[in-house]
């Protein structure tokens, strides 16, 4: 494992911990898109089915279990927790995320490495992860005034994507047979979605001001 991959995994983990911390400490999920969280839960469950069939390392297994567990816990909190669920911005979180699920599944049926149950679900999870942030970005933009922890959450998620791209470039250059075309193209799309957010993030950081997204 190279340093970029590790940094990517850690920023991914931090983003989820920041989100859990926000929900736990403030007993509020305002500014967080339940749609995006549901999509991530689907992504992790679909991709990590290989927990039952393949063993790669203790690190991989533990991280997969943590990601599945945390994403399900977040969805549970936002939907069912007595206090937290009342803070959910239901009216602005209106993205039709079922269309994303359907579109990604159809794409995975046609574009995959092998036509097996696990490979199609793997491709599906890669495509869905690429677009899963969209409801969250739309919610950020609509609500305009966003709290700091939510901004940090999106920032760390974006950082994870950026590190993974560096990781793929590194692996492509150092491993003779490394080819991950489906994931690399989807990863580029996903990272590009964050470009706008990062632009405004750095502007607010430079001016030492609160993040403001244009309406």
């Amino acid at each position: 494992m190279n340093i970029f991959r590790f940094a990517g995994d850690m920023t991914h983990l931090i983003s989820i911990l920041v989100l859990l911390l926000k929900i736990y400490a403030t007993k509020s999920c305002s500014g967080i898109s339940l749609k995006t969280q549901e999509l991530y839960a689907i992504v992790f469950v679909a991709r990590y089915l290989d927990l039952f069939t393949d063993f790669i390392s203790v690190y991989n297994t533990v991280m997969k279990l943590v990601f599945i567990g945390c994403s399900l816990a977040i969805v549970w909190c936002m939907r069912l927790h007595r206090v937290v669920r009342r803070t959910y911005n239901k009216d602005v979180d209106t993205f039709r995320h079922y269309f994303l699920v359907l579109g990604c599944f159809l794409l995975a049926l046609f574009v995959h490495e092998k036509f097996t149950f696990q490979e199609v679900l793997w491709a599906f999870s890669i495509y869905l992860e690429a677009v899963a942030i969209l409801p969250q970005l739309v919610l950020l933009q609509r609500s305009g005034n966003v709290d700091n922890l939510t901004v940090q959450y999106v920032f760390f998620l974006g950082a994870y994507r950026a590190f993974y791209i560096l990781n793929w470039i590194y692996r492509y250059l150092t491993e003779p047979h490394f080819g991950r075309w489906i994931a690399s193209v989807a990863g580029l799309v996903q990272t590009a979605l964050y470009a706008d957010f990062f632009y405004y993030y750095f502007i607010s950081w430079k001016n030492n001001a609160k993040l403001q997204l244009p309406a």
Binding site: D50, D54, S57, K64, F67, W168, E175, F178, A183
Partner: peptide, 10 residues
Amino acid sequence: DKQDSGKDEL
């Protein structure tokens, strides 16, 4: 295999 196709990643 798993490593060549990047499925050793998360």
